[in-house]
Design a protein around this nucleic acid. Structure first.
Lengths: 209, 209, 209, 209
DNA sequence: GATGAATGAGCGTTCATTCAT
DNA sequence: CATGAATGAACGCTCATTCAT
């Protein structure tokens, strides 16, 4: 299942792409402010800059908008992660660097993350599976980096667990901002988490560049 | 603000307590299955075992049910945490023990945790503040245990961060069960997280009883 | 149909009388403030000083309260009118005196009058007929006074019309207070209306005592 | 405040006008039969010939329907009054003529008048003020005619009082029809009231054309 | 006689979705 | 392709009335 699983009655694919971008952009703002359920389709249409009738030319159901939002988020996350991670590099530096860029990314996408956390349940079972798979892919990316950086040093389960921890700690930066962003800046939060992580991995930070 | 901030038109306080327990129990199941917004007040009433009219004798608005769910959860969590933590013990054992019982608790309350994660935004600003304060209290409890167990060994910010990490990792067990509970049992999950934690703290696990 | 047409399950008639008085007193205030429909039976019970269960021991339906209010009003009006009118006096003085006391009465019962005007429609057909009959009785009393005061000087229709006009002008003092009581006091309103009335009747006011 | 204070989500203003006319027409019948409170919004929609959803495209709240009814009534009354009164004419004829056309008008709008008398209290404070102001305007129109017809012959207070009496007597024809229309036709009612009025004003009717 | 907890029919209102223009 | 008027199922909530204690 991909975004192509959300059919549109409009033929011109470039137009579909464009309209959906407008839609997603407006929707994220609205969902962040009032949540998926309290946002009406009319509001989405208005925020996107077209009429309610037009909105329904590009989606079938309200839920499709939410799906599109999630999908576009993962798309962007994946893109940026792939750009910033060198999957073949094997030093610890690479792990640190990956965590840094992931946390920065999560900082940029706080709103999207919050929306996702709160609204996935509103998606159909199929769409949920799709979204969950994307999450697994993300965690897998982190796992790979860990394994590359620390070959043969960890139990298999521990790798998965550490990847998960990092993944969640990134999301928490946005999701628990009311608590964390009182005490930390993105910089200090990242630094301290990396510090704890490396200690947990028994790595001497002094060795890092 | 406490549950007493949700007024009832019924005078018999014991009855109010009892009915609200029925209500919360039914509501958690429903909210877990379909979320707060897709659950109707009639369903809540039915699940609680009384009529829609009776439901509204014990609350003012649908939102009150959600608040009651959150409140009862924190009540129970706090109670059990206080029972199982010796706030004066200063050994590392105490920290380990606290984490264990907290994780077990989170395992028992997975549904409640998921509901909280997904639906707090549906509460009024006031109620949100109340709930968030409860979370802060919980994290503070963990912080205290950490400080007691490792006096003078950590930066202040690190204590807060570690407490927060533990807190989130406990909740993670529930809200990411679709991922974690494939690979781990509660036992192994707890063991490995504690292992990583202690390594991060530079503690020799061998010393533990 | 009389108030005895509103059955009570309580045997003690004196008690019924007493409770209903409490009820009517509270109800008039409430109906004046918020109208019959927006007043709840619970509010009536509370204002009367007893519980909702007790309220329903003395009436069958909410509508009965309204009927009781109307009935008690006419009772009191009739009583006071009969006290102040000498039905056998034949001078113009008697008419003037009757109008004066009727207007004063309407001033005292402004709230009741307003309630009646606005809520009779909520009564059952039977109760409406009863209330309308009471009004006819009242107008008939005025007609009698007019005839006594001005024997053989008016067309039959005119008597009825004048009686009606007086009747309505009395009620209007309360019902249109937002307009009239800006310009007039009860005293001046009464004086000017009587002046116009007597001119219309071609009576020399100078002759009056 | 005018009917434009009742916003509609429909853009086509002509359509709004048309639908609201349908709405008001249906609503008057229903309100006359069963009163504002006992009439449901679904009944109003049905009587207007559209669905409940459509009804709410043209109003915000049920109360708006009542306001629209009142507003449309005054609109029509004012229009017809202005058509039939020559505000510069100074003869007594003009007053008589004004009263006649006003009474005829009230005959045509009996239902609306009854609704107004019974339901204004259900309007919001703002709307009530608006409606009451309209009444004042109407009375002021009558006052003007009286002054023009009888310059310098009346106390100022008397003019207001007479205008008020005429105004109420017109409405009385409708809201006391159960009493008056047994004895009078509109014709005879009008004739006799005018007769009494002119006598009260000390005018020789013989002089009239 | 008095109480108040329980009931459920019924109301006002919203909003996703459709479809004629 | 775009529009926006129309629809009606469904929701949250109220309140008159009953009846066991």
């Amino acid at each position: 299942m991909t975004k192509n699983q959300v059919p549109s009655s409009i033929k011109d694919e470039a137009l579909v792409e464009k309209r959906r971008e407008q839609m997603v952009k407006g929707a994220v703002t609205l969902f962040t402010e009032k949540g998926f359920h309290k946002t009406t389709t009319r509001e989405i249409a208005k925020a996107a800059g077209f009429s309610i009738g037009t909105l329904y030319e590009y989606i079938r159901k309200k839920e499709d908008v939410l799906f599109l939002v999630c999908d576009s988020m993962y798309e962007r996350v994946k893109e940026r992660m792939e750009d910033s991670i060198d999957q073949n590099e094997t030093s610890i530096d690479n792990l640190v660097c990956a965590v840094r860029s992931y946390f920065t990314l999560m900082d940029d996408m706080q709103n999207e993350v919050v929306v996702m956390y709160q609204e996935v349940k509103s998606l159909s079972k199929d769409a949920q599976d799709y979204v969950l798979q994307k999450e697994r892919d993300m965690v897998a990316m982190l796992e790979k980096v860990i394994i590359n950086s620390l070959p043969n040093q960890l139990l298999e389960g521990d790798t998965a667990l550490i990847a998960n921890n990092i993944f969640v700690q990134g999301q928490m930066w946005g999701f628990r901002r009311w608590m964390l962003q009182r005490t930390f800046t993105l910089q200090t939060y990242t630094d301290r988490q990396i510090h704890l992580l490396l200690q947990g991995l028994n790595v001497q930070e002094a060795n890092l560049s």
